[in-house]
Amino acid sequence: MIPAPNAADVADCVRRALAEDIGSGDVTARLVPAAQTSVAHVISREDAVICGRPWVDEVFRQLDPAIVITWHVGEGERVRADQRLYTLRGPARPLLSGERPALNFLQTLSGTATSVRRYVDAIAGTGCRIADTRKTLPGLRNAQKYAVLCGGGINHRIGLYDGILIKENHVAAAGGIRAAIANARALDAGVPLMTEAEDFDQVRAALDADVDLLLVDDFTLPQIREAVQLTRAHRARGGRTVIEYSGGATLESVREIAECGVDRIAIGAITKHVRAVDLSMRFESDE
């Protein structure tokens, strides 16, 4: 089951999207008589994984609760080109005003979910998972994290507040990885402790500290396999550390990385390089 997105966050995103698009009022929609009603159908012009229904629903709820939305596909469902996604019935003016904001949410989040699903499919059967990063579109962090789940991936930390991730600059500032880990432990922050490793001295330091997550950064395939062996030996002794690869995996390389035995692979591109799905809304006279 895909957990529902935070309703307050969805509502806030939609309010901001409508404010930036409609501003003081949709003057073009006033060309249509106020009492006119219409029916509109939204289709996908390409194969995709659909994500963003709560945002679409909220767009039209905020514009006019009288609008009725009938969905023909489920959240996270694969669709084909020219497949109908949902039908709208209601007052024509708010239907026209909501067209672009609703499609913007749906095409962007579906693009994210579709990208994730490609990576998930590429490593099917390996036992590895695809994880996201904080490389998200500004203001859409929670929405894109939700889209990752719809695409079959898993979430890394949401932000800087729900996990400690020690990276090279933290190591340099602290005077070494062991000092950085010790400082993190002393915080007693009650959040997962994660650390990147750029060499095997850092791998061993992270395992000695039994961090929650070890990220091997830009390792070669033989190095990844060795780090996996060390991590599995650590877990066999009662350790809890999960091992993740990060550092530019592509669709072409992700499977061979997964086959090295890592538990997860972080892919910044699934949210950073997202390409919106091509969608179209078609109006017709009221039935």
Score class of each variant (00 low, 15 high):
I166Y: 02
T87F: 11
V56Y: 07
Q229S: 07
V191W: 10
A7Y: 10
T108C: 12
V254N: 03
S97N: 13
R129A: 10
V116C: 02
I224S: 01
C128N: 13
Q202M: 08
L221I: 06
R237D: 00
G151I: 07
V68G: 07
R232F: 03
H156M: 00
T37Y: 11
A40P: 13
D162F: 06
H156T: 01
C13H: 10
A249L: 02
A40Q: 14
P101E: 09
N104P: 04
D217W: 00
L63C: 12
E77I: 08
N6H: 13
E284C: 12
A180W: 02
D12R: 12
L149M: 09
A4F: 13
N104L: 04
V116S: 00
V32E: 12
P101G: 09
A182M: 14
E284Y: 11
D57C: 09
A180N: 04
R232N: 07
V39E: 15
D199E: 05
L31V: 14
Q83H: 14
T231C: 01
H273N: 07
A249E: 01
I270C: 02
C150S: 05
G52H: 02
G74A: 15
G25R: 08
A122G: 05
K272F: 03
V49T: 14
C13N: 13
A269H: 07
L160Y: 00
G153R: 01
A4N: 14
A266V: 13
D286H: 15
A172D: 11
E20K: 08
D162G: 07
T37D: 11
S280F: 06
R45G: 10
I67P: 09
G25T: 08
A184V: 11
V211G: 01
E287G: 15
I69C: 04
I69V: 09
R235I: 03
R93G: 11
A276S: 11
F219E: 02
R141D: 12
S115V: 03
L221E: 02
Q107G: 06
V79M: 14
R61V: 10
A179Q: 14
P222Y: 00
R45A: 07
